[in-house]
Nucleic acid binder design. Structure first.
Lengths: 214, 214, 214, 214
DNA sequence: TATGAATGAGAGTTCATTCAT
DNA sequence: CATGAATGAACTCTCATTCAT
C-alpha cells in the first residue's frame, strides 16, 4: 500500500518505520524550550538511521517521526535537507577522527573506518561531491583533508607509501572506496573491498626507481 | 448535488466520462502506429538527456514530455524506469563497443570512453549496482565484462599491464571511474580524472618480480 | 539541457523543489490543527453526498474538494476508501438506532428507515457485502444484527411475526430492501418498495400451524 | 504492479488476464471482413468472462485483449459499454429461456437458473435497473417479464403459488435473488440462497383465506 | 518554543477513445 | 474492415512546507 511512490530502481526498506498510528488527536505535550538540545540530538540520530535505511531522499517527515519530534522542530533545527545531512556527517567525521587520529594509525585504518561507515557513506559521498562548494560542506572536506594529510605524511615518512601520493589522491581513494562499499550489497562487500584495497596498495606503494626520501 | 460524473451507461457503476473529454480538446493528432519506432527512439534520447540533467529519479513524465510523446506511449514502450534505463545504457554500451572493439584499442581507450559518457554514467552506475541481480541488467554487465576481458588479455600479452590484474579489477575500476567522473562537475573533471588514471596505471603496471622489466 | 529541476541541496539525488512552489502561491491559509474536527465532519458529510451522487467509486479527491479540505487532510483522516465509507455508514447506523431503538418500534420502522437511507445504502450494501470480513465492517454488521434481533424478539412476542423468522432473515431482507430501493429511481421507488414490503409481510407473518393464533 | 487504480473496496481478480507481452510491434495480420462475426462472438464471450471476473467496470481494453481482437474492432461492434453488456445479457436470457421455457418448468427452476448465472448477474442487475429506460435494455426486461409471466400463470393454475402474486413480484424477486447471490461469496452462497428461497416460498404460497382458483 | 495538522502541487499509472496503416 | 499504437486527462497517493495553538 505504501511504497508506490518509491522509485522502481531502489528498494531499500531496512527499517520499516514504526508507523505509530496512535489515532489522530493525541498530541504530545509541549515540553517547552528545555527539550531543544535533546530534540536536536534525537533528530540527528534519527536522520542517520533514516538516511542509512532509505537513502538521502527519504521523506523528511520520517526523520521527525522517528525522532519522536514535531515536524516544526525539525524545521527549526534544520531548515533544509543539507543542514541535517551536514550535522549527521559531522558526527561521522568525529568518529573518523576519533578512530584515526592516533600516532600509530595508518591509511589502512582510515580506509577501514570509511568502509565501516559505508551505509551512511553513500549519502556522505553524494553530499560531499555534489555540494562541494557549499560553505557548510567545505569545512568538513577540510577536516577530512587534514586527517588524510597527517596520515599520509606519516605513512610516507615510514616508507610504507610512496611520495608520489598526494593528499588529494587519498581523498579520491576515500571517495571511491566509500562509494564502492556503499553500493555493494552485504554479500559481495568484503570481496570487492578487499580487491579494491589491493589495487590501492599497489598504486600507493613506494616506487622502485624513486629515491624515496633520501 | 447534480451528478458531476455522468456515466456512459448512465449508471454509477460504470466508468464516468471525464468532464474534459467532452469538450473540444486541442489534442495532438494521433500519428498512428508508424510513430512507434520514432517515439521509441525519441524516448530513449529524451531519457538520456533527462537522466543526465536530473539524475535517475527525474520525473518519469518529463521524459515523455521532452520526447514530445504521450505518457501512455512511454508506458507502453517502457513499463518501468528500469526498462528505459536499460535501453539507454544498452545504447551506451553499443557506443562503448564501437569505440573500443578494435584490435589496437587499449584499456586507456576504454577508460576514456567511460569518462566521455560520464554524465549518463551516474545513472548507469546506480543502475548496474542497484539492480545487479535483475535479468535485464545482468546481460550488459556481461557485455561490459566481455569488453574488459578482451582488452585486458591484449594488454597483458603486450606487457603493458601486469598479469596480477583480473577482469573484475577492470570492472571495479570502470565503476569507480565512471562514478567519480559523473559526480565531479565540469571544472574539476579533467584534473580528477587524470589523477585517478595515474593511480590506476600504477596499480595495473607490471610488477617488478614479474618477467616484465629485466 | 539546462537543469529543470534544481534541488534544495543542489544535487540531483535530493528532492527537487517543485517549480510552482517557488512562485507566489494563492493557497488557502493553514487554519491550524483546530480545523481538524471540523474537517473530519465536513469530509464525512461530503463523502455522504458524493457517494450518494456518484457511487462508491467516485473520485476520492472529489470528496476533499467538496469538503473544502486539502487532499492531504482527507488522507490523514481516512487513509483509504473503506475507512471513510465506514465513518459515513457508522453515522447511518446511528440514525437507524436513533429511529428504531424505542420500545414501540417495529420491524416496519426499521424497513422504513432503511428505505429512507436508500441513496447512501447502495454504497452501504456494496460495502457491507464486499468487505464483510474486514474488522472495521464487521462491527457494524453486528450493530445492525443487534438492532434486528431486539426488534424481531419483540415482534415475535407480540405475535405480529412468526417464530420461524430468524435474525438472519431480517438481515437478509434489510439487505435486499436497501439494495432494491437504492437501485430504483425516485419515480418507481414507492411502488417497488411497497410491493417488496408486502411480500416480506407475507413471508414473516405467523404460520397457521404455529401456536401463534390459537 | 497493476491493480493500483482498482478501488480499495472491490478486489475481485479471478482470472488474471493472460498479460501476453508478446513484444511491441508483432501485429496480428488483418484477417479481413470475414473475421467480423467470429470477432463478435469472441468479444461477447470475452466480455462475459471479464465482467464476471472484474465487474462491469473492468477495463474496456481487457475485453478486446481477452478476445484476441483489436480495440478498434471492439469499438466497431460495440460502441459503448452498454451495447456489449446488452449483448452478453441477451445471451444470458437466451440461456434462461432455454432452460425454463418448457411445459414442466417451475418458478423454482427460474430461480435456480438465475442463481446459476449469479456471477454475471451482478452486472446484469446493475444494468437492468440502472438503464431500465434505455431502449436497448427495455426489450429484455420484457423478455424476462414474458418468461416470468408464463411460469407464474402455470404455477398459479396448478395451485402451487397463490394468485396474490403478480409478474412484477416475480421480477422483483428475481432481481433480489440475483443480487444477493452475486454479492455473496462462494462459501455462504448456498446457505443464503436457501434462506432467501424459503422466504420467497412463504410469500408466494397460496393464502389460506383465498379461494384459490375456482 | 514545540507540536503536528493542514495544505496542495506533483509524480506515477491507468484507460477510454481515436485513427494511421 | 481489422489492428493496436498513440494520446492525454483523470485519479490516487505522497510529501515539503506552513502555521495555528
Amino acid at each position: 500500500m505504501s511504497a508506490i511512490h518509491r522509485t522502481t530502481l531502489s528498494g531499500s526498506t531496512l527499517t520499516p518505520v514504526p508507523e505509530s498510528r496512535k489515532g489522530i488527536g493525541t498530541r504530545k505535550p509541549n515540553r517547552g524550550p528545555s527539550a531543544g538540545p535533546g530534540n536536536r540530538r534525537a533528530l540527528i540520530a534519527a536522520a542517520r538511521e533514516v538516511f542509512a535505511a532509505d537513502g538521502l531522499q527519504a521523506p523528511f517527515s520520517s526523520i521527525a517521526k522517528r525522532a519522536g519530534v514535531g515536524q516544526g522542530s525539525l524545521y527549526r533545527h534544520f531548515p533544509d535537507r543539507l543542514s541535517i545531512a551536514v550535522a549527521v556527517f559531522d558526527e561521522n567525521i568525529d568518529e573518523l577522527e576519533a578512530s584515526v587520529d592516533r600516532p600509530e594509525a595508518t591509511l589502512d585504518d582510515l580506509f577501514d573506518a570509511i568502509i565501516e561507515q559505508a551505509a551512511v557513506s553513500t549519502a556522505l559521498i553524494d553530499l560531499i561531491w555534489e555540494n562541494r562548494h557549499d560553505a557548510r560542506v567545505a569545512h568538513f572536506t577540510q577536516r577530512l583533508a587534514r586527517l588524510a594529510e597527517s596520515l599520509l605524511d606519516r605513512e610516507i615518512a615510514s616508507g610504507r607509501v610512496g611520495d608520489h601520493v598526494h593528499t588529494s589522491d587519498v581523498l579520491l581513494v576515500v571517495t571511491m572506496l566509500a562509494d564502492l562499499t556503499a553500493r555493494t550489497d552485504a554479500a559481495d562487500r568484503r570481496t570487492d573491498a578487499r580487491r579494491a584495497r589491493a589495487l590501492i596498495d599497489l598504486a600507493f606503494e613506494p616506487r622502485s626507481g624513486a629515491a624515496g626520501e633520501e
